[in-house]
């Protein structure tokens, strides 16, 4: 009897561990390191690995806060265009309007927050679907970015460059001569997002609004304001990504974030965020975005995959994850899985 109980406890713990999505993500991340490391030892060189962060840090930063939006049941596909808008606003106000660089940066963040607030207002207060408004927003903000770039004396395809060193310092500085500043920024943002979402009262409100907006409203939460605030947060995070990207590249361009959307949504979904709202975690999203980033870095380095092919593995990853999760939740497959488990444990016993 006792033996039986302990035996039953074994697989139970195992399945519980596997069900914990973050554990699964950590395993995937470790697997990535093992596979890429085995394929090409250059992959494991720490400086190179840390340098690769620049290629995907904006995905990591933005997806953290798009998670908030998705938890409330919305979606944000405008973040990419806000990245370009912040970049060009910094460039134009600094170069052509003669603002000091930090004032330009502050202005860019304010503009991004305003963009997020505008979309958030329409979504929360006018009850329009988030998808449509952020779609319109992505047209509008990238269009505005293009218009702002025409204010500049520099041709838009060249990009505005020649930023002062203090601005480039954001990305050239290395903590302990090793860890690039971008990673530090990302780590700080993870902590902030974690505290906001999982510790503070605000985070509980975000979750409750996502689970049931009416219930949230009845329990005295200003649900519309909460929804609006998530879009402001994602706008600000896009601005931070735009600043980091502009500082790293040394040029301000209006089309910087054009290709980010799919990666951001993939990171959120892979991180365990439910696109219908009510579920998600900052740690999961952070892990997932790093998995995607490492994949984008490792595939070309170790398997000679053309960087333009990278959409394939990321698309497959997204589909496999969502289909896999849907399958596990289907009663029929769940029954088959349980049967398999019984057979397995039965045969073992």
């Amino acid at each position: 009897m006792k033996q039986n109980a302990s035996k039953a406890g074994g697989p139970n713990k195992l399945t519980k561990g596997l069900k914990n999505w973050n554990t699964f993500l950590v395993i995937v991340l470790v697997l990535e390191f093992v596979i890429f490391g085995a394929a090409n030892e250059r992959f494991l060189r720490i400086p190179l690995l840390l340098l690769s962060v620049n290629d995907f840090i904006s995905i990591c930063i933005i997806s953290l806060f798009v998670t908030f939006v998705m938890i409330t049941g919305g979606i944000d596909i405008q973040a990419g265009s806000i990245v370009g808008l912040t970049s060009i606003v910094i460039g134009v106000t600094w170069q052509d309007f003669g603002l000091p660089i930090w004032a330009a940066v502050a202005l860019a963040v304010a503009v991004a927050a305003l963009c997020g607030a505008l979309s958030g207002f329409f979504i929360a207060y006018c009850r329009v679907q988030a998808m449509v408004i952020t779609l319109g927003g992505s047209f509008l903000y990238s269009g505005i970015a293009l218009l702002v770039s025409t204010l500049s004396s520099t041709e838009s395809y060249q990009g505005i460059s020649g930023f002062p060193d203090s601005f480039k310092f954001i990305t050239s500085f290395k903590l302990f001569d090793l860890i690039p500043m971008q990673l530090v920024i990302f780590a700080v943002l993870v902590v902030i997002a974690y505290l906001l979402l999982h510790v503070s009262k605000y985070g509980r409100q975000v979750f409750l609004v996502g689970v049931n907006q009416d219930a949230a409203e009845f329990s005295g939460i200003n649900s519309k304001l909460v929804i609006l605030s998530t879009y402001v947060l994602s706008g600000i995070s896009a601005a931070i990504a735009g600043i980091v990207l502009t500082s790293y590249l040394g040029t301000a361009k209006s089309d910087l974030g054009d290709t980010l959307t799919m990666n951001i949504i993939t990171a959120c979904v892979l991180g365990g965020t439910l696109s219908t709202g009510g579920k998600g975690s900052v740690i999961g999203t952070a892990l997932a975005s790093i998995i995607i980033g490492i994949m984008r870095f490792g595939m070309p380095l170790c398997f000679d995959v053309n960087t333009q092919y990278l959409d394939i593995p990321i698309g497959i990853l997204l589909i496999v994850v969502v289909v896999g999760r849907a399958m596990v939740n289907k009663p029929r497959t769940a029954a088959i899985l349980a049967g398999l488990k019984n057979k397995f444990t039965g045969a073992k016993a």
Partner: peptide
């Protein structure tokens, strides 16, 4: 949205 976003990536790569 999520599923077809994935298909979109695969096809673009293909």
């Amino acid at each position: 949205l999520i599923f077809t976003l994935g298909t979109n990536g695969i096809l673009r790569g293909a």
